[in-house]
Nucleic acid binder design. Sequence first.
DNA 1: CGTAGACCCTGCGCGC
DNA 2: TGCGCGCAGGGTCTAC
Length: 283
Amino acid sequence: MPELPEVEVVRRTLEPHLVGASVERVEVRAPALREPLDADAFERHAAGRRVAAVRRRAKYLLVDLETADAPATTLVLHLGMSGRITVRAAGDGEPLPHEHLVVHLAGGRRLSFRDPRRFGQAFVLPTADLDTDSHFAHLGIEPLADEGESALDGAHLRRAAVGRRGPVKPFLMDSTVVVGVGNIYASEALWEAGVHPKRTVRRIAAARWERLAEKVREVLARAIAEGGTTLNDFTDGEGNAGYFQVSLAVYGREGEACPRCGEAVRRVVQAGRSTFYCVGCQR
DNA sequence: CGTAGACCCTGCGCGC
DNA sequence: TGCGCGCAGGGTCTAC
């Protein structure tokens, strides 16, 4: 469900509910995720703290926690394929299906983390250790970062492709190159840029890298503006659906007419994931 | 070192 | 109506 835009939409909707709130306790309801939840760590590093900020790095949601007498910590949440994070009102007490973690806030509201497929993650660590933590140490640049040294541009993609082979679509999804580009938006950005998903990264010229970088940023920004893509069950932190799926040009549209040239959209599997593209206008 | 494939899970929609 | 199959937004590990 969630690529970068969906996580950013969740972040933005959670932020006003969480910043300034106090964490009374963290309840581990079902510890079995791929990395089992550590109730002791939550108790030691999250309980009794105040939310200072809600940030995002790649597809990770970062809830910064502070207290007067200890260094800052960060609650890290990843939605995997099927995770959902919502704020529940005080008194709304029914346990939800697949609810793994409940963060109880002062006043009775709760932050609820659900994940049927259990590919998600939840852990807490000192904020100072974030950059060196194994989940973050090898991450590439943020595609929507401001202009500057680490902005996503054609030169960044071209440099990252040096010495590599293989098709451009999995390359775009490689989080050591650029983060946040998942299976939906990789197909969409390639279609927007007119680049064939199977094209080898060694045969892409500077101008096309530039166009591709631009389209990646554009597609992600548009998806955020439209509240994220909802295929089955994505909702923001307040439980609202997103609308970007109506804007998808090729993803999930095998056999339908390409909006640009009318050719039938095709589906292939690359690196185990479905890719949708148009032979008429992607070269 | 870089890349391809298997794998971790549950739920849903489709065709029979 | 009910059932089995294929497929799903992510990431990591192993084998080449």
